[in-house]
Amino acid sequence: MTVLVTGAAGFIGAYTCRALAARGEAVVGLDNFNDYYAPQLKRDRVAALCPDVDIRALELTDRAGLAALFDEHRPERVVHLAAQAGVRYSLDNPHAYVDSNLAGFVNVLELCRHRGVAHLVYASSSSVYGDSATPPFSEDQRVDRPRSLYAATKAANELMAYTYAHLYRLPATGLRFFTVYGPWGRPDMAPVLFSRAVLAGRPIRVFNHGRMRRDFTHIDDIVAGVLGALDCAFDAPAADAAVAPVPHRLFNLGNHTAVELERFIAVIERAAGRPAQKRYEPLQPGDMVETMADTARAHAAFGFDPAITIEAALPEVVQWCRAYFGDRA
Rank of each mutant, 00 (worst) to 15 (best):
V180S: 04
Y89N: 09
A21Q: 02
D99T: 12
P315I: 03
G228R: 14
A241P: 11
N107G: 11
L314R: 08
F234S: 15
R23K: 13
E110M: 10
H95Y: 11
R147H: 12
R23W: 06
A229K: 00
V28S: 05
I222Q: 03
R63L: 14
L20N: 00
F105E: 06
A241S: 14
H248D: 04
E139P: 05
R145G: 01
A123Y: 04
N32Q: 15
V246C: 08
V28N: 06
G29L: 14
R263F: 09
L91E: 07
P75R: 11
V79W: 00
A229L: 04
E158Q: 15
A266N: 11
T257K: 15
N157V: 02
I268D: 01
A242L: 10
P191L: 13
E25I: 06
A155N: 05
S148T: 04
A9T: 11
T163F: 02
Y162I: 13
A8L: 07
D54P: 00
Q319F: 01
Y97W: 12
G228I: 01
N101W: 00
P75H: 05
D235I: 02
T153R: 14
R88F: 09
A19N: 07
Y168E: 13
N93R: 15
E316S: 02
D220L: 13
C232L: 09
V318S: 02
G201A: 04
G65I: 12
V28G: 11
H248P: 00
H73A: 01
E72V: 03
F33T: 07
A236S: 04
N252H: 14
R176D: 00
A161M: 11
A241F: 10
A156I: 10
D140V: 13
